[in-house]
Design a binder for these strands. Structure first.
Lengths: 347, 347
DNA sequence: CCTTTGTCTGTAATCGTTTACTCATCGACC
DNA sequence: GGTCGATGAGTAAACGATTACAGACAAAGG
């Protein structure tokens, strides 16, 4: 039926038309586009004028096909929903835009299979580099990235084969835990994101556990409440952890969003923070400082990770090949949801 | 100097190699890729096997060049920082991914010139459709979109020439205001995002103003505190509005982020909400329900806008041309930051 | 004055697909 | 049994840029 749908003719102005109007070769036009210094001012001026007159816009597909450079980078993040990765993506995008690169964004929904599919799609689109979150990816994904520069973020492992820009999640929660132990806490609970397929989440749990063992304390499995990121999960986490006997005096949350929920639940239940329970978040999202009381949390260098990831890929595609992972430090920000453990008898 | 940088040879497996191995023509290979029903099972099987064996991946640039379909959509949003647009982008991306489309994301930083530049970049990259926020764009941008489908979001204007998916910002704050007037409030303040070049923000201010005038009340210029989105701005807003005499009993915020700041400041200053001041936000972000007290706010259909915008563009590129804007309704969610105006003498 | 060197332009091949055409085959129908 | 249509496969020409390569020319050096 609708036979002539594709019959659109005018595909826009081409470089050839510019060349004709400027009375020069296509090569010259291409050169003023990509290498303006190496063309005489005379020709350059004519070409630029022709471009303006015609409203010329380069065809990205043709450029990419011929030059092997799409000027597009890609990123696969778990989700955009909770602003957790938004800051990183924002910084990444900004830095890329500064180098005339665009950013393709895809989400994995915390599913490694979907992550691989999405990454594959991005590679097919011709991204020159790929940013990933975490370093626990399907082997197929790594194989796919054989010829494509990539960098893992939100993670740093010195011994990893894969380039990364990030921090050590395990050490971060280790540090949080030591801090809390120093305040006299000995009964811990944790509200964590789902750890399956999420190395950041499981490393954070592992960090708490490792630190506690150092002090002959422990984090039994039932003291870890594991749910998808959301404020509600944080609330439920507190409700659940209070059912334990003895119930924890310190709750470490895998994320500020969970911590916000936890704090809201404490308030609703009339539990005093930090007098009865100390609460720690992770990420230092914008709101953390404005909660009541202000949230003690581990600040992660989200914007810097985004910028550094961009730099990493940009240098990679411009030929610098001996690049190393970059190790960033998170930063414990002690505010007022943490305090000395309550006296044992006050339990 | 570095002359042989580009000497990378292997560009990967091409369709021609697949054709050779499957012992058929490139046309057939292309057909099993794009139109599998119209090729005999025999050939199809051979081609699919060859693809698997060789690890073939289509070259997006070549496809796009020849077929005029990049399978990429673009979006330019003000920012990713405050999660305001994240929900919409998330839904958009998901819906697009379901149709094998990828999403290029760029940010304007609330700057119309930058918005146009970024949009131009996306169009050069060959996006088949473009999502924008608001409908106040540079004329050059609209001209650029002459041949590219696009849709404005977060805005709905029946009389507009431009397709949009969204709601009426003016009417939304009109409604909020009427609600507050109904509670007996007559002194209003507003904490708004920067209105310059931001039609959503200025429409929201206009809506408040229009409603008040209906009731012979007014919103004098000095009662509008206008700052970039941030929690801090919300806090400052309250501090500022309290210096007015008489100071407002009802404060409408252009956004939940501002409202959160406002609420935090009230708490810090010992101002009782809603007894002394009623506070209303906008967006119904996840945290709104979990503030203390829970925030009264205008819920906007962010996810639905994203999905509908995707649908709009997808149908547009698949030939359906007589598409109309879609009008969504925001929804006032009354929680507990709003209450009856304090008695005049208690001022 | 001739050669050498360097700089700038133009010609034309090429990137990896899709697709308009052509041709062959086969079944159905008259 | 011949013709017509439909269907499927192959050939080769695009798509719009970039870039080896070669040629032209000028400046510099002997």
């Amino acid at each position: 039926m609708s036979k002539r749908l594709q019959t659109k003719v005018g595909r826009g102005i081409t470089l050839l038309q510019v060349a004709r109007r400027a009375e020069c070769s296509t090569a010259s036009v291409s050169r003023v586009l990509n290498d303006p210094e190496h063309v005489t001012p005379d020709i350059r001026a004519r070409v630029e004028e022709a471009m303006r007159d015609l409203g010329y816009m380069p065809n990205g597909a043709a450029r990419a096909l011929r030059s092997l450079r799409s000027r597009i980078m890609g990123i696969v993040i778990p989700t955009l929903n909770h602003a957790i990765y938004a800051g990183m993506v924002e910084a990444l995008q900004q830095r890329l835009a500064g180098s005339e690169y665009s950013l393709l964004v895809a989400t994995s929904e915390y599913d490694l299979t979907r992550e691989e599919q999405q990454a594959r799609l991005l590679v097919e689109r011709g991204v020159e580099g790929l940013v990933l979150v975490g370093d626990n990816h399907r082997p197929e994904l790594y194989r796919l990235l054989d010829r494509t520069p990539y960098v893992n973020t939100y993670v740093y492992k010195a011994d990893s084969d894969h380039p990364c820009v990030g921090f050590d999640n395990r050490r971060a929660t280790f540090e949080i835990t030591e801090f809390l132990v120093g305040l006299g806490h000995c009964r811990f609970g944790m509200i964590s994101a789902v750890t399956a397929g999420n190395d950041r989440a499981s490393d954070r749990v592992a960090g708490v556990r490792a630190a506690l063992e150092t002090y002959n304390l422990s984090l039994p499995p039932e003291a870890v409440y594991e749910r998808p990121y959301s404020i509600l999960s944080g609330r439920e986490g507190v409700r659940y952890l209070r059912t334990l006997t003895p119930s924890p005096t310190a709750i470490i949350c895998g994320n500020d969003v969970l911590a916000m929920g936890a704090l809201a639940e404490c308030r609703a239940a009339g539990i005093s923070v930090p007098d009865e329970i100390s609460l720690v978040g992770f990420d230092n999202l914008e709101f953390a400082a404005h909660l009541d009381p202000p949230l003690t949390t581990m600040e992660v260098p989200a914007a810097e990770m985004g910028a550094r990831a961009a730099d990493f890929l940009l240098s990679q595609v411009s030929g610098k090949l001996d690049l190393h992972s970059v190790h960033l430090e998170p930063n414990l920000i002690v505010r007022r949801t943490t305090g000395r453990a309550p006296l044992p008898d006050s339990r």
